[in-house]
Design a protein around this nucleic acid. Structure first.
Lengths: 211, 211
DNA sequence: GTCTATAACTAGATAGAC
DNA sequence: GTCTATCTAGTTATAGAC
């Protein structure tokens, strides 16, 4: 019974940590702000996680794992670049509610010169990148784009864009700019998907010869 | 005389602030850490800037203005998408030394739920976006891509990518991933630049009809 | 496991000497 | 303008009661 209670408390603390980071940013994190958000005692942070850093690391990891698990089946079902951009658009829309990427972005910023957080962020990013890379690898196979971009490079670019996008979200005056941009990218991707065999060969040879 | 000394002290404080943010992140910022980095007295932060926040805001703004001023003539000389990606690649390489985008990214993260910093970040981002948008507007005029993307949307995407890229820089194991990705994007852009009039018209009509 | 109390420290900010 | 000294408030972390 005491074990079940312990688990519940840990859960509360992790959830409260995510909430504080989402609503006030990593700069507002302290054992007290977390305890207040979760309506628990401040000392429990240290009893269960050893330190505030340890709790933040755990929260970052769980927040990311949660989102990646939800996304995994959807990415597995993607068969075209257009479909991938569509999933990206939905993910961005869902972020307003869940804020998992925001948590990752904030902890990423806080991990500068902080080995403990850096380790947690590294593992969180790896969870994302695994999924994105696998999807891109699948889509790139047989695509002319593979002539100039490998999955690793594209993955890094895609992850960075998403992190930057969510970090800048609060600064945006118009909120439809991102969806507009994603729609445009989606149409470019769709055009690429729908290329006939002749244009496909032509594009491939152009990309191959471009210095 | 006392005025010249005052200006020198302000400069020292602003430079020290940038240095602490670059080397230790926004989380390590305090009147004392800044004063130590600049070898000046801690109380001077409040005498010259009123508060730590005020100093950080000023540093963010100056750091950005400095970089944007250096970039402006180079962007003005860009005439192709390939050229734009090339400038972006150089900018990324120079960041390792200067770290101006890193400062912006860190203050951006710290501006979450902080009106003072948010205002400074907003103005800093505007400085960047002005230049990027003007360049993209020029390049998009007459390009088939304009069928699906306007300069505003693309600017937001480009800025977000750059901020995310610099924020993730310390986490990258291999350091040539970004340059590889930029090289690939550059070849795609070059292919777009070199399109003949026939392919150009064909692409335009495809993009216009893509839903 | 959880709570109270507290030690040890660091933060922002200011008054007053120089 | 700059420095020392200091106040206040908030921080991590732990001992010990429950």
């Amino acid at each position: 019974m005491s074990d079940a209670r312990s688990v519940a408390t840990k859960r509360t603390l992790v959830a409260a940590t995510m909430q504080v980071i989402r609503e006030q940013g990593i700069g507002a994190i302290s054992a007290r702000s977390i305890a207040t958000a979760g309506s628990v005692n401040q000392a429990l942070v240290f009893y269960h996680f050893g330190s505030v850093e340890g709790l933040v690391a755990q929260a970052c990891l769980e927040s990311t794992a949660e989102r990646v698990a939800l996304l995994e089946p959807r990415l597995a079902a993607v068969t075209t670049f257009g479909g991938l951009v569509e999933v990206a658009g939905r993910l961005h829309a869902e972020e307003r509610e869940a804020g998992n990427v925001t948590v990752l972005a904030q902890v990423l910023a806080g991990s500068h010169a902080n080995p403990t957080l850096a380790e947690a962020v590294g593992r969180s990013l790896a969870l994302w990148n695994e999924q994105v890379r696998a999807t891109l690898q699948r889509l790139l196979a047989g695509s002319p784009v593979a002539e100039v971009l490998d999955a690793d490079a594209l993955t890094d670019l895609v992850s960075a864009t998403f992190v930057g996008l969510e970090l800048m979200e609060p600064t945006r005056s118009r909120e439809d700019v991102v969806s507009g941009a994603l729609a445009g990218i989606g149409r470019l991707a769709a055009a690429l998907d729908d290329l006939g065999p002749v244009s496909r060969r032509a594009l491939r040879s152009v990309l191959r010869s471009t210095p």
